[in-house]
Design a protein around this nucleic acid. Structure first.
Lengths: 118, 118
DNA sequence: TATTATACCTAGCGACTCGAGGTATGGAGC
DNA sequence: GCTCCATACCTCGAGTCGCTAGGTATAATA
């Protein structure tokens, strides 16, 4: 059954986009990224570790990220850094997001094309 | 096989939102909605009938839409109209979309090089 | 020593989209 | 009259992604 009951998260592909963006100009590790998305979006976007880690691994596997372990305060962390491919990917995803966003806004605000009287 | 060679569509839940929005103040039928989304988004968003029809059926089942058959030029069409519940749903989804959108924009533009706390 | 916070990871399920296919009718062209 | 295309409906299977819920391990705190 279509359990299409609210849930509708509009979220598809967003974790990847945000991860790439957060890594511009700085290294971060998984746990930190989870917290950063939660905090910087003021709880609007909360992706669990079960979402973030697999995406990180896939991005690394695809060559968009480079990983290296570092031990800080006796804690082992896996830091990620953007590669050139990752920057390209970020550009592509940002462009796609922008396009989709504009298209949706256009229809939501309607009226522009040939809206009928409401 | 690339496990996760992501196509990143940013599309999740968008068809439902757009359908509800298009039906504000006017009745439409499925085939027409498919074309309307394609045209009004200038091909940025192209959802096939295989996407739209199931959503229409689910929305009707949930009481967000009312359907009635009408024959025009010998063609049988199923017209959909928003119910009060549908308008409420539209309001909810629009709010969610707006929130997600703002959160994503915030991180994308964020002068985030320095901060965890906003 | 027990609990909590940090930090990593995976598996299984469910939900959503896409593409391909299937039915039926009206109109245009030959 | 017959064929082909556009209209108009519908469904199924595959693939992907996100979510929940687990599981491991160590450091700090109570």
């Amino acid at each position: 059954m279509a359990k299409r009951d609210i849930g509708a998260s509009f979220v598809n592909g967003v974790p990847e986009l945000l991860i790439l963006r957060l890594l511009v100009g700085q290294e971060m590790y998984g746990y930190e990224i989870v917290a950063a998305i939660r905090d910087q979006s003021r709880e609007s976007l909360v992706f669990g570790e079960g979402v973030i880690y697999p995406v990180l691994h896939a991005l690394e596997h695809d060559g968009a990220l480079k990983a290296h372990r570092k031990t800080v305060n006796g804690r082992s962390r896996v830091y990620y850094r953007l590669t050139a491919a990752g920057e390209r990917r970020l550009g592509d995803l940002t462009a796609t997001w922008s396009k989709v966003n504009q298209a949706v806004q256009g229809i939501l605000q309607g009226g522009t094309q040939h809206a009928k009287a409401v």
